[in-house]
Design a protein around this nucleic acid. Structure first.
Lengths: 107, 107
DNA sequence: CGGCATCCCCCGTGATACTG
DNA sequence: CAGTATCACGGGGGATGCCG
């Protein structure tokens, strides 16, 4: 069943979501992790050449704080850190798919 | 069928969408217009007390430019302008619904 | 290799006052 | 009623350099 919204509460809810997705690079990062992919910090850097280290870290930390990505640290030399999506993060995929389909319908 | 994405193209597509939804007030406005509602400028002002005139206009203009809302002007005194969603704008509703449902699934 | 700190600039937002 | 114009500010984001 579709939930009952007031304009205010619905906008509030989606606003929370968009705040999570906000930030120039979050989506790019997410799409690189969708499908259960696990990537190292340096792999993400290579995959997204235009991003700066500062931004990559910052956005990853926010995604982590929001419970979307998981950070796994291997205490070894050289250091190794892997990023992957949480289950909840994976479930975001269909929602973004809906947005993409909507965008394609434009014309 | 689900479209085939490269991380880059998918991120690009959704980024365009988020750019459209961006802006502190767009979502609030949209939810006030969903379901075929037609609202006058002053009605939107009353419905969203915290917004300033400048912001309301600006966001409405951007939504209009993006093809999401329609602006109807009645040349009379006093002036009267009505805002409503385009068909494409209405179709955005289910996509936002998907985001809301995802957010509810958190915990 | 992975991450933090600092400086700086730009733009989105807000407050206020004025107009057709 | 439905805008436009102007000023001011705060924070997101970029560049660069240093640490464990």
């Amino acid at each position: 069943m579709t939930k009952k919204w007031t304009p205010a509460s619905a906008a509030d809810g989606v606003e929370q979501v968009l705040k999570i997705l906000e930030g120039k690079w979050k989506l790019v990062i997410l799409f690189h992790l969708f499908g259960g992919q696990v990537k190292r910090f340096s792999e993400l850097e290579k995959a997204i050449p235009a991003i700066t280290q500062k931004m990559l870290i910052q956005q990853l930390r926010q995604l982590e704080a929001d419970g979307i990505v998981t950070r796994t640290i291997y205490h070894q030399v050289p250091p190794k850190v892997e990023y992957s999506l949480t289950d909840w993060g994976q479930e975001l995929c269909p929602a973004l798919d809906a947005l993409l389909k909507w965008a394609e319908n434009k014309k």
